[in-house]
């Protein structure tokens, strides 16, 4: 990690927030990247990693992919603020995949560092030099490991969950990939459904109960 990469300064936070706002329409005032400790701030390389990993999970099809709509930075923000329990202490028994270097003093996991380290190890070198198919393969291997029998607490599950959250609550993911209607105006209890029926991201019960 270079000196520059390791010292994410306040202006960089704000710049990052502004970029995020441009990418996904989040008001800068509402984003709190500036609250991050320098030790928690991502490097440019980590931001690029998270953008490309997000895109690998949810790539562009007839709608843009997750990396295209700023989900990488959203995941970093979400992890910094502990969404989905990601700042809770994790016992070492629960995370056999994490070595101590990826845990904070309070026992929580530095997910971004863990992912970078894991991809580097699996990729035998600079994983960002890989093309999209090559990176997809690495991410798919991590995913398979994380969803293997008994791997419930695997760190990848938290990251993947936040990628999904970032995408399907973005305007593109929520209203183009899926459908969104804040004010349906009526309830139809039974409508025909076919293989091309798209779900409603504004079906809050479905979102809550998954």
């Amino acid at each position: 990690m270079s000196q520059t990469e390791g010292s994410w300064q306040r202006r960089d936070f704000l710049r990052g927030a502004a970029l995020l706002a441009l990418a996904i329409g989040v008001p800068v005032a509402g984003v709190s990247l500036s609250d991050l400790d320098a030790s928690e701030a991502p490097t440019d390389r980590q931001r690029e990693m998270m953008r490309r990993v997000s895109q690998a999970v949810l790539p562009a099809t007839d709608t843009p992919g997750a990396g295209d709509v700023g989900v990488g930075d959203f995941v970093i923000l979400a992890l910094a603020h502990g969404l989905d329990g990601t700042r809770e202490p994790a016992g070492s028994a629960e995370i056999p995949w994490a070595v101590p270097q990826y845990q904070r003093r309070d026992g929580s996991v530095r997910y971004v560092d863990w992912l970078e380290g894991t991809l580097s190890r699996m990729g035998n070198g600079d994983f960002l030099r890989r093309d999209d198919a090559g990176l997809h393969d690495l991410v798919a291997r991590i995913d398979a490991e994380a969803f293997a029998e008994g791997a419930d607490a695997h760190p990848w599950r938290a990251i993947k969950g936040l990628i999904l959250l970032g995408y399907y609550t973005s305007e593109v993911g929520g209203s183009q990939e899926l459908r969104f209607e804040l004010t349906p105006g009526r309830f139809d209890p039974a409508l025909p459904m076919g293989p091309n029926t798209r779900a409603w991201s504004s079906d809050w019960t479905a979102v809550e109960f998954g």
Partner: peptide, 18 residues
């Protein structure tokens, strides 16, 4: 009916998963 959040519990990445 479950929504996109079911994906948090399911394996898979890429076009087919999306």
């Amino acid at each position: 009916q479950s929504g996109w959040t079911r994906g948090k519990r399911e394996p898979g990445v890429g076009v087919d998963f999306k």
